[in-house]
């Protein structure tokens, strides 16, 4: 299996993590209360940390002048290969929590599988991530129950969030040629195999939260191919501002 493919895969996982982490970090100082503010930014840090590990690995395979920072700060929208769901704006608190829950439920299962990757570095990164993911999931799951089964207002907002997010979950469980090839070699995670367990777990939590599982009659895809929503560009203009204004700046 070519190292170039593993590099691309590491960049994808780094992109997922950096975009997810950045969106969570936008809650910093905007959380509904202090403890929640701390929690959101702590989780954001975990994802930024993962992005660093995946990007560093990609840079190491590349062997050129690229560093972890080059991947985060010196690429444009179309070069980012994150799943679309991560780049959607934070929205209200219910939207952020719903996204977090849907992705935490997936993320824990994903990292557990990646831990048995035949690639040693991917496996090592996953082994760290699994431990953190358990905490992430426990927290976002609690919020689903609290918001869904809370007031009429929180219930309605959560239902709308889940409805608006649902169509973005389809591409999580699809493999393109690159990932299929790596999955066949035991390097990448075959996410198609995670779908039914995810659906069962999510349906159970939504049920307990008195939230209806959406019909699933629409879906949007394209993140892995660099086809993004309009939101990613705005996010990057914020994330990359310093490096664009002062290339190579360090402090």
């Amino acid at each position: 299996m070519s190292k170039e493919m593993i590099k691309q895969y590491a960049i994808r996982l780094g992109d997922d993590a950096v975009v997810q982490g950045h969106r969570l970090s936008e809650w910093c100082s905007n959380g509904p209360f202090l403890e929640e503010d701390l929690a959101l930014t702590n989780v954001a840090l975990d994802f930024i940390g993962r992005a660093r590990m995946f990007y560093s690995y990609a840079a190491e395979i590349d062997g050129g002048d690229f560093t972890e920072d080059s991947y985060a700060y010196q690429r444009d929208c179309r070069e980012f290969t994150n799943l679309l769901i991560h780049e959607l704006p934070t929205g209200d608190f219910a939207f952020s929590m719903a996204r977090q829950y849907l992705m935490d439920e997936f993320g824990l299962a994903f990292m557990e599988c990646l831990e048995s990757s035949s690639d040693e570095t991917l496996s090592a990164i996953a082994a760290k991530a699994v431990k953190e993911s358990r905490y992430h999931l426990r927290r976002s799951r609690d919020w689903m129950l609290r918001l869904g089964d809370g007031t009429e207002e929180s219930h309605n907002r959560l239902q709308k969030a889940v409805d608006d997010l649902w169509g973005y979950t389809a591409e999580i469980f699809e493999l393109d040629e690159l990932e299929q090839g790596l999955a066949n070699e035991g390097i990448a995670v075959d996410t198609t195999a995670l779908k039914s367990n995810w659906e069962t777990a999510v349906a159970a939590v939504l049920g307990e939260a008195t939230i209806d599982v959406p019909q699933g009659d629409w879906s949007i895809r394209g993140g892995r191919q660099g086809m993004h929503t309009e939101h990613l560009g705005h996010m990057l203009s914020n994330l990359q501002f310093m490096q664009r204004a002062y290339p190579g700046q360090e402090w």
Partner: peptide
């Protein structure tokens, strides 16, 4: 070895 992934 790092403690948490994002530990500053």
């Amino acid at each position: 070895t790092p403690t948490y992934s994002g530990c500053p």
